[in-house]
Design a protein around this nucleic acid. Structure first.
Length: 288
DNA sequence: CCTAGAACCTGCGAGC
DNA sequence: TGCTCGCAGGTTCTAG
């Protein structure tokens, strides 16, 4: 499931294979893949064609291809199962191919957006003075962004009446963190996912952010996490960080720190994995 | 304004 | 064999 490290791997692939090329014909094969482009698929295809792509950028789980001299960018979100593949023209269409982008050059490759569950998509938007697409102005900077403000994040945690994992997944507070890296960072920080954020001290926030950054940086180093064939990077290669996950998906397996069997709890229509010994629940929360 | 929870979507595997 | 159901979960929308 693509979170920040996986998306960054894809962005780097786009920088290598797609930047500085001029868009040719674009085919939209499924309307849901362009649902954020309100003018529709035909407008999306027509508006892109003929523009030269600049250096791909990213914030959290969103990435975008700036169109040079157009004041606009192609915004991409992979959702749950999205892939951006650079393929030769004669490669067979993938079963869930949603969008095809050709280029006005002789390199012989095209960009394909493939997405089984159609939670992701592409769309075209104006960019602001800093080059950010207008529709993601509400997305916070991510923890690997040098301009991420730890103190602002800490004060936001103190102000919120919520629990720590909800806060980590709130993209308007901190972006790029999903269910997997949230569980990993909380396990490293020995914090239970239902701990209220209002009582967080500055050292606790600092330690948690450190673990978020560590786990994401390590994943990035090995090319992103992958659990099955749903996630591949821009060139179709799977990541392999899943081999070193400490919490996510380890129900019943011994905690790598203390040996206590790890637990899984239903949480917000998904799952939370944690060590019942290292990550003690706060007062009032039924122990796992 | 704030927070919680549902809805969106498809494939896979378990259970019967 | 074939059916149903739970599960995977990021984002947006709605309800309270």
């Amino acid at each position: 499931m693509p979170e920040l490290p996986e998306v960054e791997v894809v962005r780097r692939g786009l920088e290598r294979w797609v930047a500085h090329r001029t868009v040719g014909a674009v085919e939209v094969l499924h309307p849901r893949a362009v649902r954020r482009h309100l003018a529709g698929g035909e407008d999306f295809a027509r508006s892109l064609s003929g523009h030269r792509i600049g250096v791909p950028s990213r914030r959290g789980k969103y990435m975008w291809l700036p169109l040079e001299d157009a004041g606009q960018a192609v915004l991409a979100h992979l959702g749950m199962s999205g892939q951006l593949l650079v393929q030769p023209h004669d490669a067979p269409d993938e079963k869930h191919l949603r969008i095809r982008m050709r280029f006005d050059d002789a390199l012989g490759t095209e960009l394909r957006f493939v997405d089984q569950r159609t939670f992701g998509g592409l769309s075209l938007h104006p960019v602001d003075a800093e080059g950010l697409p207008d529709v993601i102005a509400h997305i916070a900077r991510d923890p690997l962004d040098p301009l991420f403000d730890d103190e602002v994040f800490h004060q936001a945690l103190r102000r919120r009446r919520t629990t720590v994992k909800r806060a980590l997944l709130d993209q308007s507070l901190i972006s790029g963190v999903g269910n997997i890296y949230a569980d990993e960072a909380l396990w490293r920080a020995r914090i239970h996912y239902e701990r209220p954020t209002s009582g967080f001290t500055r050292p606790r926030t600092t330690e948690l952010l450190g673990h978020v950054r560590d786990v994401m940086s390590e994943a990035l180093d090995v090319g992103g996490t992958s659990f099955d064939s749903l996630y591949v990077n821009v060139n179709g290669e799977s990541g392999y960080f899943d081999r070193s996950l400490d919490a996510y998906g380890r129900e019943g397996l011994p905690c790598r720190r203390c040996g206590t069997p790890m637990r899984r709890r239903p949480w917000m229509n998904r799952s939370s994995y944690f060590c019942p010994r290292c990550q003690r629940p706060p007062r009032g929360v039924t122990p796992g």
